[in-house]
Nucleic acid binder design. Sequence first.
DNA 1: ATTATATTTCAATAAATATTGAAATATGGT
DNA 2: ACCATATTTCAATATTTATTGAAATATAAT
Lengths: 98, 98
Amino acid sequence: MEHELAAQRLAELGHTTRLAVFRLLVRAGRDGLPVGDIQKHLDVAGPTLSHHINRLKGVGLLTQRREGRTLYCVPQMDALRELTGFLESECCTLNVSE
Amino acid sequence: MEHELAAQRLAELGHTTRLAVFRLLVRAGRDGLPVGDIQKHLDVAGPTLSHHINRLKGVGLLTQRREGRTLYCVPQMDALRELTGFLESECCTLNVSE
DNA sequence: ATTATATTTCAATAAATATTGAAATATGGT
DNA sequence: ACCATATTTCAATATTTATTGAAATATAAT
């Protein structure tokens, strides 16, 4: 995984609300959750939530799928795995040498 | 690991320069690196680097140790492990259920 | 067509963060 | 004491991000 993208994803996850959104989605599983459901959990104004969801979407941490009036947010687990992989990829030096 | 701290650490790592600093340190291993050495790698002004190092320090991702005039930055691997652990902790739902 | 629901876009403001030159501090060598 | 090296603090400015009410859009139900 590329450095810049990793930094961007970390930055997006590095915000309380967005981290909460993302973790909700991960817990929810493959189907994801409607924006409205997320909002019920999080006490933020609609536009604020929309903004944060778009940022997560912008770095590929979630995608959206519409079902009628309901817009689902779906976590992209591969993106998360890439990211944790990236973070751990330099650890070996330290772990192995002791 | 607590949500707020995780978000803070993610935010600090979510900046190109800081991520580069941190990864340099991880690669360097237990002894860490002098601030000056970091600067040689990174093309940033001293005060800028100092600022970023302090932010990483502020969330426990590194500590410092002085040897004479030289100030070493030492990566805190436990903090990183806590963080990756936190990120992965909600994954199980998704991974197990398929 | 009208109405209700779900979510977004717009526009404005507030708050946080990044960047850097210049000056200050700390340490060690002469 | 003086000088050089290593790094930080200060102060100012620029940039980015967050937040929200109001208005707009999209979809579905009647």
